[in-house]
Amino acid sequence: MTEVTTPALTIDALGKKCPIPIIMLAEQINYVPLNSVVAVLADDPAAYTDVPAWCRLKSHRHVGSYELPGGGWAIHVRRNY
């Protein structure tokens, strides 16, 4: 099943090195309602692995990672609690 959800919040972490994108995500995920999606835009290769790993550690859900036309990814995370 593919899940198409418009993000409730987009965090622009392009050009930022890890762990900054993760720090931004951890702080800002609390601004969106439960079960809604946050999109992290990042181009540090570490973020591609680290956002899903953060979701696993923090029991949020990694919805998917989508390549951006200009490089990097939109990494979608669903707030679970």
Binding site: P19, I22, A46, T49, D50, P52, A53, R56
Partner: peptide, 10 residues
């Protein structure tokens, strides 16, 4: 770390 899918920073 990438292949394992674990946290790579810190």
């Amino acid at each position: 770390l990438e292949a394992m899918g674990v946290l790579t920073h810190g």
